[in-house]
């Protein structure tokens, strides 16, 4: 076997995949901009994507905030800088960990569910059936999920931010000897709206990625149960990778450091 041919094939199939994804994104955005709009379906997706993700996002945010406070305290201790815990916790949570952890959790929960549902609809011809019933499948299936995810994620992240800070507060006041009022004052004085907003913007982008990758992989699933399984895996893996990659790019863009 010719190694150059193998490399070439891999590169070509990667480029083809990127092209297909770009076309799918374009079709979705076009569908987003024109009626009909499915309000009922969009509300349903808000419940599934946003509301039902609250427990898992809240729980991970709580433990992240708690462990962050503990680590900063132990690290800061080496320089006698342990008093900086509230400031670093709020900065780390709002700018970075809040949106990224919410994004990864929602990727695991929602991208998988979307890909499995749409993938099953694909292999059982339900998507073709939509077409024969004068309904655009992209409008009917993709747009409600995209809209719900893009709007839910910042709200989830805002809730996660608060819970994360609270997790840090709990550990700091219960285990590390901080006074509650001082901790909160330091948190509020230090955090700027730019810190919080940058995290919420990231969250909206992550929401878009999660819904898009779920829908894209579902739409392109082939060949029965195995194909739907592969689509689900791909949806989760690709949205996680894209979340981490765009996180870097967004951080650089939002804070002009690159």
């Amino acid at each position: 076997m010719n190694p150059f041919a193998a490399i070439g094939r891999a590169v070509l199939s990667l480029l083809a995949e990127i092209g297909r994804l770009a076309l799918f994104t374009g079709r979705s955005l076009k569908a987003l901009a024109s009626p009909p709009f499915y309000l009922r379906l969009t509300l349903q997706q808000f419940v599934r994507i946003g509301y039902l993700s609250v427990p898992v996002v809240g729980l991970t945010a709580l433990s992240t905030g708690a462990v962050l406070a503990l680590q900063i305290y132990l690290g800061g201790n080496r320089y006698g800088a342990e008093a900086i815990v509230p400031q670093i916790v709020v900065l780390g949570i709002t700018r970075e960990l809040g949106p990224v952890i919410a994004g990864l959790m929602v990727a695991g929960r929602v991208a998988a569910a979307i890909a499995a549902e749409i993938g099953t609809m694909r292999v059982t011809e339900q998507i073709d059936a939509l077409t024969t019933l004068s309904t655009n499948p992209v409008k009917y299936l993709v747009v409600p999920r995209l809209v719900a995810a893009v709007i839910s994620m910042p709200i989830l992240t805002a809730a996660g931010d608060s819970i994360g800070v609270f997790g840090g507060y709990l550990v700091a006041t219960q285990n590390l000897g901080f006074t509650g009022s001082v901790y909160l004052k330091n948190t509020v004085d230090f955090a700027t709206s730019a810190d919080i907003n940058s995290g919420l913007i990231k969250a909206a982008v992550f929401g878009f990625i999660v819904a898009l990758m779920g829908c894209y992989n579902g739409f392109n699933s082939r060949g029965g149960a195995q194909g739907v399984g592969a689509a689900t895996t791909n949806a989760v893996v690709s949205s996680c990778i894209l979340i981490l990659a765009t996180d870097f790019v967004l951080t650089a863009l939002l804070f002009h450091t690159a």
Partner: peptide
């Protein structure tokens, strides 16, 4: 294509009902 699709009805092999 919309006006054309309104002329069509289809029975799918597996039913393809929306579950």
């Amino acid at each position: 294509r919309d006006p054309l699709m309104k002329k069509f009805g289809m029975l799918f092999q597996g039913g393809a009902l929306f579950d």
